[in-house]
C-alpha cells in the first residue's frame, strides 16, 4: 500500500515537471515571436529613394543620343 502511494506521488511529481516545462517552452516561443520583427525592419532599411527620370537624367539621355 505504501509502495503504491510512493509510486503515485512520483508520477504526480513527474507530471508537474512535464507540464511546467511545456508551459516554459510555450512562453519562450511566445517571447521569440516579437524578436522576429527586426527582420522586417531590415527589409525597410534597404528601401531607398531610387531612380527617378529627373531633368538631369533626361539631359544625359539627350547627350547620349548624339
Amino acid at each position: 500500500m505504501s509502495e503504491n502511494k510512493a509510486k503515485l506521488s512520483r508520477r504526480n511529481f513527474l507530471l508537474t515537471v512535464g507540464a511546467s516545462s511545456a508551459a516554459g517552452a510555450a512562453a519562450v516561443v511566445a517571447s521569440a515571436v516579437p524578436r522576429a520583427q527586426p527582420v522586417v525592419v531590415a527589409g525597410d532599411k534597404r528601401r531607398s529613394k531610387g531612380y527617378e527620370a529627373t531633368a538631369h537624367v533626361r539631359n544625359y539621355y539627350r547627350t547620349a543620343k548624339v
Binding site: S48, K49, G50, Y51, E52, T54, H56, V57, Y60
Partner: peptide, 8 residues
Amino acid sequence: NRLSQGKL
C-alpha cells in the same frame, strides 16, 4: 548614392 539624388 547618386541615384537617390536624381543622377546616374
